[in-house]
Simulated scan of single mutants.
Amino acid sequence: MVVLICMVGHDYQRILDGVNYWRRKYPIEAIHILYDRKKDKYGYASRRNAKDLEEALSFAGSKPILIGYNPQSYPDVFSTLYSIIRFEVMDMERRVLIDTTSTTKEAYGAAVTCALMFSDVTLYVVPPAERGWYIPEPGMPEYEEWFSKVRNVNGLDPQEIFLPGYRLENPKEDEERIVSILLAHGGVSDSIRSIIEWCGENPENAAVKNKYSRLIDSLVRKGLVREIPQAKVKRVELTPFGKILALGLKYYKARKEIHTPKPIPTYSVSIDEDRSTQLNEDLVFKSEIDNIRFRFERKAANKQ
């Protein structure tokens, strides 16, 4: 069963569209609407939207649960979300979907942190059908006024996004190799055997097969790949998170290649035998600049 948590700000229709989307896919057991309880213009818009959503989402004798919070306070958002999520996931054994479409950066950070602490929590946003409708067109007088106002809004002291000590475990070297190879083959393999062959190993070797079975099991636990049973074998494919991680690994390796210092080439310059004793030896230069400088000094010495 699924529970929704909707953090409500200025948006109404997009939140409603998101709820209706999930209702078509899953039976929704409860909807928690978190509204801004502050007595300011943001709180006014949030409370108004929350009341309208409560009315629109009341069906079959059930009504959404309205909960006030301060979306500009990371501690308040985290403690509110944590209490709801822990109860729904651990006590009620439900899956939780959190709508972060219409909330603050502080609230988004708290939602991400909470989601990382529980396995059955998913974050989502509902993108607008039209982006930037509230921004004037560049070149218009209104744009310059808007741009100047937005870019010069003063900030307060930074608010740290507190995270749990435990972090997601990065894949090990062999696991990285598998997700990278899967990405190179379109993110999917018809069997573990194909992965073994792509990695250049013998799929007939029992030890090799056991090794790759353990690696795939580990990647499944980490949420990077999933196995899909077929007639005789299991298809292996990257999860959506596995795909973006594999892309991240690809970009990381390219970046590392660019920024890894290369060894400085050495240049051996031969000297004619009739030159002075000081110059009559093999000299090794560590850069082209030294080479040019030596030639200049040698030319000057010959003129004397």
Rank of each mutant, 00 (worst) to 15 (best):
V225S: 02
N210V: 09
P171V: 10
E197Y: 04
D174C: 05
P203E: 08
K234P: 01
I228M: 02
S287D: 11
N302R: 09
R235P: 00
L219E: 13
K222T: 01
P263F: 00
I258E: 12
L224E: 07
K253P: 02
I289E: 14
A254K: 03
V233Q: 01
E197I: 15
Q278D: 13
I258R: 11
K262G: 07
E257R: 08
K286T: 11
F285Y: 07
D190V: 15
S189N: 00
R298I: 06
S268Q: 12
R275P: 02
R255N: 08
N202M: 07
I258T: 08
I196C: 05
A300Q: 09
G248I: 08
Y267G: 04
L168H: 11
I216Q: 12
T277M: 03
K262R: 14
R255P: 01
K262Y: 04
Y267N: 05
R221D: 15
E201I: 01
A206C: 00
R295F: 07
E169R: 14
Y251W: 06
E281Q: 11
C199E: 06
H185D: 08
V220E: 14
Y166E: 15
L249M: 07
D190A: 14
R255S: 12
K234V: 01
P203M: 04
E281D: 06
R255V: 09
H259F: 14
P261D: 07
N302G: 03
K256Y: 07
S189V: 00
E281P: 00
F241P: 04
N280I: 01
K234L: 01
F241S: 13
S287M: 01
E197T: 14
K303D: 12
D282S: 01
S287Y: 00
E169Q: 14
I258W: 04
H185Y: 13
G248Y: 04
S194F: 05
E169L: 13
K232S: 05
E257I: 02
S213C: 01
S268G: 08
E257C: 02
Q278A: 11
E176A: 11
I216A: 15
I271M: 11
Y267A: 05
F296Y: 06
R226A: 02
V220N: 04
G200T: 04
F294K: 13
L168E: 14
K222D: 09
A184S: 15
I244C: 09
K253Y: 10
P171G: 12
I195C: 03
G187S: 13
D282R: 00
R221I: 08
R214D: 15
R221E: 15
L183D: 10
K256T: 09
R255E: 11
E201A: 06
D190T: 15
Q230C: 02
R221V: 12
N170Q: 09
V284A: 07
E175W: 08
K211Y: 09
E201P: 02
V188H: 00
N205K: 13
Q304L: 09
T239G: 12
A231L: 04
V225H: 03
